[in-house]
Simulated scan of single mutants.
Amino acid sequence: MTSAVERAQTQLRKGVLEYCVLASLRAAPAYGLELATLLGRDRVLLASEGTLYPLLSRLRTQGLVATTWQESTSGPPRRYYELTDDGHAALDAFTATWQPFRDAVDSLLEDPR
């Protein structure tokens, strides 16, 4: 049985994980495991790697990220993900709407009247 906290986390992840991935790629390209480690470090944003790779594939299909293969010194080649111009635009749009949205939610949680 899923707890109320788990249900709330799942719903919040569905809404923001895509943009957290884009934000993680803002400074530099990264490969999947790198992103999984970064996003999963506190177990809040990413519950499992199983949700990340389908999301990365969808972002690629939507043209928000581009991929390249690069050789690795410690194993097989790695697929690196990098923001496209459309990815930057999507992240900018989310950033512009996030703070007012977050502030409105915080305001209701602190004082619903």
Score class of each variant (00 low, 15 high):
Pro100Ile: 06
Ala30Val: 00
Glu18Asn: 05
Gln70Trp: 06
Thr2Leu: 14
Gln11Asn: 09
Asp103Val: 11
Arg41Trp: 01
Tyr31Asn: 10
Glu82Cys: 10
Asp103Gly: 05
Ala47Thr: 13
Thr10Trp: 03
Thr10His: 11
Leu22Ser: 02
Leu59Lys: 02
Lys14Ile: 01
Leu55Tyr: 01
Arg79Cys: 15
Thr95Glu: 12
Thr97Met: 11
Gly63Asp: 04
Asp85Tyr: 02
Leu45Asp: 05
Val5Cys: 01
Leu38Val: 10
Arg78Met: 07
Gln62Gly: 02
Phe101Glu: 02
Arg43His: 13
Asp92Gly: 10
Leu64Tyr: 06
Ala93His: 04
Phe101Leu: 14
Val21Gln: 04
Val21His: 07
Tyr31Ile: 00
Ala47Ser: 14
Ala47Glu: 15
Ala47Phe: 01
Gln62His: 07
Leu22Asp: 03
Leu45Cys: 06
Ser74Met: 09
Ala47Trp: 01
Met1Asp: 03
Val44Pro: 01
Tyr53Trp: 11
Ser3Lys: 00
Trp69His: 11
Gly50Ser: 10
Ser107Ile: 06
Val44Asp: 02
Val5Gly: 00
Ser24Met: 06
Ala96Arg: 12
Ser24Val: 01
Met1Gln: 05
His88Met: 10
Ser74Trp: 09
Thr10Gln: 13
Ser3Trp: 00
Leu35Arg: 00
Gly15Cys: 12
Tyr19Phe: 15
Ala47Asp: 14
Arg26Thr: 02
His88Cys: 09
Cys20Asn: 06
Glu34Asn: 08
Val105Leu: 15
Tyr81Asp: 05
Leu108Val: 15
Asp92Leu: 12
Arg60Gly: 15
Gln62Asn: 11
Arg41Gly: 08
Leu33Tyr: 09
Thr97Gln: 14
Thr61Trp: 02
Gln62Met: 13
Val16Ile: 13
Thr37Gly: 13
Arg13Tyr: 03
Thr51Cys: 07
Arg43Ile: 05
Thr68Met: 04
Thr95Lys: 04
Tyr80Glu: 06
Thr61Met: 11
Glu49Met: 13
Val44Cys: 04
Pro100Cys: 01
Gln70Lys: 15
Ala30Met: 09
Gly75Pro: 00
Gly15Asn: 11
Ala66Ser: 12
Val65Trp: 02
Pro100Gln: 00
Ala36Ile: 12
Tyr53Gly: 11
Glu110His: 12
Leu46Pro: 10
Arg7Gly: 08
Pro54Asn: 04
Thr95Leu: 07
Asp103His: 09
Phe94Asn: 04
Thr84Lys: 09
Arg113Val: 14
Gln70His: 12
Ser74Phe: 12
Ala104Leu: 13
Gln70Ile: 08
Ala27Ile: 00
Pro77Asp: 07
Leu64Pro: 00
Pro76Gly: 15
Leu25His: 04
Pro29Gly: 04
Leu56Asn: 03
Ala28Gly: 03
Leu38Thr: 13
Pro77Tyr: 05
Thr84Leu: 06
